[in-house]
């Protein structure tokens, strides 16, 4: 086994093993622990930066414990750490010590969408004028394809993750949130600001369908299946107002 392989295995091992014999210090083990601490504390900080509400919900000590197991199981595979933690929400789903907080994994999903929105590519919205020529001809509207900004994310949760998240931003009282109430939300970036908005389930399904490449008509149908009173007007107005439509055409944009 090579030196760096031994070093790496010892750094990440759950048993905190030490690659004896490599170093010339009488107390190499406590010095090796400095590197181990650097690895875990820097990666835990990176996760805490991406998942601040998850960290607040469980407290610093539990978060560090959960992060340690995650890092040992899924160490980063790229130096671009902004993407680290893509698998964190799925990990939390299976992390039994966190089972008493069934909304925790979806909170991680919400926070991941916020990170992705923040760093997503820049595209200008097409604006109402460019869309109006399609809206004037209802027969074309059905096959209208809307391409959404890459920073746009939809989350359908069986838990009240929007209300829980908002309460941690000083909006609403945490004690008044019923965590078992299903909520649907939209994460977006308008100019430089990331926003999180509460949606109806029908509206969430409408936007998800558009993201999946469905035409306007099919996306409306998906929403109507959930709620036969769904009105696409306000949903479309929201997408336009937040500059989320970056291309509109009668065929799916490449």
């Amino acid at each position: 086994m090579s030196t760096q392989q031994r070093f790496t295995q010892a750094l990440l091992s759950a048993e905190q093993t030490f690659p004896a014999g490599l170093f010339c210090h009488p107390d190499a083990e406590s010095r090796f622990a400095v590197y181990r601490n650097n690895v875990f504390s820097s990666l835990t900080s990176a996760l805490a930066d991406s998942y601040p509400v998850v960290a607040q919900l469980v407290g610093a000590e539990f978060f560090a414990f959960m992060a340690r197991v995650f890092i040992q199981t899924f160490p980063p595979c790229s130096p671009v750490l902004v993407n680290y933690g893509n698998a964190f929400a799925d990990f939390i789903d299976t992390f039994s010590p966190a089972a008493s907080l069934p909304y925790l994994a979806d909170m991680a999903r919400l926070e991941r969408l916020r990170v992705e929105a923040y760093h997503a590519a820049d595209f200008p919205g097409v604006g109402f004028e460019a869309l109006s020529r399609f809206l004037e001809y209802p027969e074309q509207l059905h096959s209208l394809h809307l391409k959404l900004h890459p920073g746009t994310g939809v989350l359908c949760s069986s838990r009240a993750v929007f209300s829980l998240w908002a309460a941690h931003q000083g909006q609403g009282e945490l004690a008044e949130v019923d965590p078992n109430h299903a909520e649907h939300l939209l994460v977006l970036r308008d100019a430089l600001n990331v926003e999180v908005l509460l949606l109806s389930k029908a509206c969430a399904l409408f936007i998800q369908a558009l993201q999946g490449g469905a035409g306007f008509g099919d996306a409306v149908c998906a929403a109507l299946e959930e709620d036969n009173a769904f009105d696409a007007g306000p949903a479309l107005a929201l997408l336009i107002q937040k500059n989320l439509i970056i291309h509109a055409g009668l065929s799916e944009a490449s």
Partner: peptide, 17 residues
């Protein structure tokens, strides 16, 4: 320094022999 081994990125500047 080194900071990757195989697919793993360790996010620290590790010492060389």
């Amino acid at each position: 320094a080194w900071s990757t081994h195989g697919p793993c990125f360790l996010n620290d500047l590790l010492p060389l022999q």
